[in-house]
Design a protein around this nucleic acid. Sequence first.
DNA 1: GCCCGCTGGATTTTATACAATTTCAACACC
DNA 2: GGTGTTGAAATTGTATAAAATCCAGCGGGC
Lengths: 225, 225
Amino acid sequence: MKNRTIAGSIGSEIRRRILDGRYPAGSQLRQDGLATEFGASRIPVREALFQLEAEGLVRIHPHRGATVAPLSPADAAEALELRGTLEPRLLSLSAPRLTAEDFARADALLEDYAAALRDGATARWGALNTDLHLLLYGQAERPRALALVGSLLAECDRYTRLQLSTDNAELERADREHREIVRLCRNGHVSAACALLTDHIDHVAAALMAFLGETSGLTKSAGIV
Amino acid sequence: MKNRTIAGSIGSEIRRRILDGRYPAGSQLRQDGLATEFGASRIPVREALFQLEAEGLVRIHPHRGATVAPLSPADAAEALELRGTLEPRLLSLSAPRLTAEDFARADALLEDYAAALRDGATARWGALNTDLHLLLYGQAERPRALALVGSLLAECDRYTRLQLSTDNAELERADREHREIVRLCRNGHVSAACALLTDHIDHVAAALMAFLGETSGLTKSAGIV
DNA sequence: GCCCGCTGGATTTTATACAATTTCAACACC
DNA sequence: GGTGTTGAAATTGTATAAAATCCAGCGGGC
């Protein structure tokens, strides 16, 4: 997964650190510091920041520097609302065309997911969740929507990571629902799978909103590692 | 609308030229040429290209240069499908909250639109259409979806511009539908406005698909000025 | 005849150096 | 005491130049 260009690899690393929380929401990203940290010049760093801004993870204020995109309940709600609109539609298109190989990969991802769950490796959870969702929509032949959903999943992971630091039960529920969705798709019950997917996203949204609501100081909790 | 940074203004200019068709789909965008053309260095050009890639107007192949994103019927269909999914939802949220000032601006845009129609100034059409649509969704409080729809509208303009070079009747129909949508919103008939908007987008999609289908060689017609 | 590796040229990518802009704190002034 | 201004420091934005990469064409080998 290594990028052929330094800017690309720096961008991947910064993205990972933002999703990790190592670069907290709202924090300044100084080009010079990042450049020396990665042992490169500032220009690849600049390009990486531009790319990340396009993904919505970074905000660039002209002549005032780059900051990690802030977290807000409204933004999380909108991201999940868009996911709820787009993902079931993609699944309904993709599910009938999923191949045996796709299901094999889905099973592997579910296994990794369960292993990460046992090990308490919440760090791996986000990527696995994204991979599984995108895999299920891969046969929809909607590349633009797929890329968009990928970006939305990445951003939702930022919020979910906050939530997971206090509540692990959601992960097991997500695991059960993922397995059931895959099972329904495999057996050809497309509409049932889509309905469950809708419930899945709605529930994630509701749980996340409840979490964000009770921890009223979002900016404070955004600093969690 | 002038950007504070050279990269921003260069990006705006390149975007305009891509939408104009002055940079045809698939054509190479050489950094050196653009830099000398704009009287700047290559670095602002690079940053502008990165930003445009994020908008989907440019594709960057590492170490192989940047090309204008190709036009394909499948891509147009997906863009319009997404618009058909997102825009009615946005309108239903925004329409009840539109202010008198919003309607005044909408009327002004409709006037400009009609003037451009009389003058045969198809060049201005795209921006006016985008402005009107975005204005109608402005009160939805969905910034992410709004930005996404703006990007989709820009891309749809690339296709519509091809179509308009041979068929002007669609513009008048669009004008009538726009006026009716605004009238319905103003009178509080939100669901009717949303239904009409859905039809509006569906019809644009159908007309565009028919046009793209009959001019089988899309790559050829993509070279139209 | 066909495939493979190599070299020349062009283009992108990155590094270094410089200029423009913003920010913040000290300070005079109202 | 509050407010506007002004300077320097820090940071970003841009230009110039060097390094890495890729592609096309060509010659040699099988």
